[in-house]
């Protein structure tokens, strides 16, 4: 009875194979999400008309929704948003980049971490407007085409995730850390990732993934560096 097999590797209620031409849950959600976003963008653009100035031309944005341009993973996205939209909301709902996760929505867990001009920030606490004119990198921007970033490969090799909800944030924090410090000590890794909470407690595997991605020996004892 597969339903009763206690395994966190194979979710029991999700069919493992998708019939030819079938739709996975993810691709279904994606289609729905995209068309919903496209529809809103269109109606808002219509309502506002092309004369609506973008925020880059004036020092006032709002109170009505307006257009901003965000450079995400090297691509410019033109989005029509309410000024009260956070960067996380702009990414997930308006740019259809749902890799960035929402957990606490208060800057207190790190799940929504992205890079803004190379610096690690919590996108839930930053207004999208603050990111105008900056280079935003999300987890979708780590891979080069089909080739995963070495830190992603290392996460996979070290099984550095359980439920995976914290993973995009931890990947971005690891990426930020390694860009600043290509060979961090164990203490520096803990410091660098200290703004990311993993509810499943996968820290040791994450630390190992970062150690290996920086050309260092992973730890053998999960309890600490000197075992």
């Amino acid at each position: 009875m597969p339903d009763q097999t206690p395994s966190h590797h194979v979710p029991s209620r999700v069919p493992s194979g998708v019939p030819d031409g079938g739709v996975t849950r993810r691709s279904f959600m994606r289609t729905v999400g995209l068309s919903a976003v496209a529809a809103t963008a269109q109606t808002q653009a219509e309502r506002l008309g092309d004369a609506q100035p973008s925020t880059e031309d004036t020092n006032q944005f709002g109170p009505e929704p307006g257009r901003i341009r965000l450079k995400i993973n090297g691509q410019t996205h033109q989005l029509t948003i309410d000024p009260a939209t956070t960067l996380m909301e702009a990414l997930r709902w308006h740019a259809a980049l749902a890799g960035t996760k929402e957990v606490c929505d208060r800057g207190a867990c790190g799940a929504c971490s992205v890079l803004v001009d190379g610096r690690l920030v919590t996108s839930c606490m930053m207004l999208a407007h603050d990111a105008v004119g900056k280079d935003i990198t999300t987890v979708e921007g780590l891979a080069k085409g089909e080739r995963l970033d070495p830190i992603q490969e290392s996460f996979i090799r070290h099984d550095a995730l359980q439920c995976g909800y914290c993973t995009p944030g931890l990947l971005m924090a690891s990426k930020a850390l390694l860009s600043d410090n290509p060979r961090p000590t164990f203490e520096q890794i803990k410091q660098g990732l200290s703004g990311n909470i993993c509810r499943c407690g996968t820290y040791t595997n994450v630390f190992n993934a970062v150690l290996e991605a920086s050309g260092q020996e992973p730890l053998r004892d999960p309890e600490g560096p000197d075992a």
């Binding site: 020092n59 006032q60 709002g62 109170p63 000024p83 009260a84 207004l127």
Partner: peptide, 11 residues
């Protein structure tokens, strides 16, 4: 969040 304007101060 309620609806507001963002006024960017130049100084």
């Amino acid at each position: 969040m309620n609806r507001f304007t963002i006024a960017t101060a130049t100084s």
